[in-house]
Design a protein around this nucleic acid. Structure first.
Lengths: 110, 110
DNA sequence: GGCTTATGCCTCGTTCTCTTAGGTATGATA
DNA sequence: TATCATACCTAAGAGAACGAGGCATAAGCC
């Protein structure tokens, strides 16, 4: 992470989680993350679309062209079985990892 | 993060935090992180030393050659004023960020 | 009609960090 | 004597994010 936004590597997990319950298109995923984090998390499009492509390439997502509620053309992504497994594994990993970091940061003289 | 260890960008914060209370040399920092996270966090030397160098270059750390308890030659790092400020700012950012990610990951059907 | 904004997709070049894999040197231990 | 732990370092490669650009369509406004 060179700028002020994401810690590298967490975007994939967020995408997997968001798609767990509903299929969504890329632009909506970006908006969703921003809105559901009160603006704390802001995903640049230059990061979002490549992330979707590589998750699809890894077989964790499936993509299908469709129409939004307003009739716009959009590519809808959904989780594959592999994506579900990856989400579970990565969630555990995030939990352990962030817990360890937070524990250190809140240590003595913190 | 391309492998299985750190989420890119968090190493710097950990280093700043560890050096807040005591000056330490690089090798000891690596060991400290591993031990104080029950092995969850493992810092490769190829990531650690460059991180120390760039933090020093940014004026957040100061380095001084000295001797360990066992008489070995080692480079001891300590926080500068700028490093203290950076630690505070980054701690807040980590807290907000990890909180937002965790909230999303623990959301409905999580 | 014409303009701007929002939606929706994409790629490219640059920068940054981590991984992997080496290297050097010294002290302790078997 | 040989090997391991300590203690430092670098370089090549991969991977991801940033910033900036581009394309196209629909909606809203003057």
């Amino acid at each position: 992470m060179s700028g002020s936004d994401l810690f590298t590597g967490t975007l994939d997990i967020l995408i997997l989680k968001i798609l767990k319950t509903d299929a969504r298109h890329g632009y909506a995923i970006g908006r969703w993350i921003r809105e559901n984090s009160n603006g704390v998390l802001n995903v640049e499009e230059g990061a979002l679309y490549p992330a979707l492509h590589r998750l699809e390439r890894r077989g964790l997502l499936e993509a299908e062209w469709g129409r939004t509620d307003t009739g716009r053309r959009a590519k809808f992504y959904s989780l594959t079985k592999g994506g579900q497994r990856a989400l579970e594994a990565e969630s555990v990993r995030w939990s352990e990892y962030s817990g360890a970091v937070s524990a250190i940061l809140s240590g003595p003289q913190g």
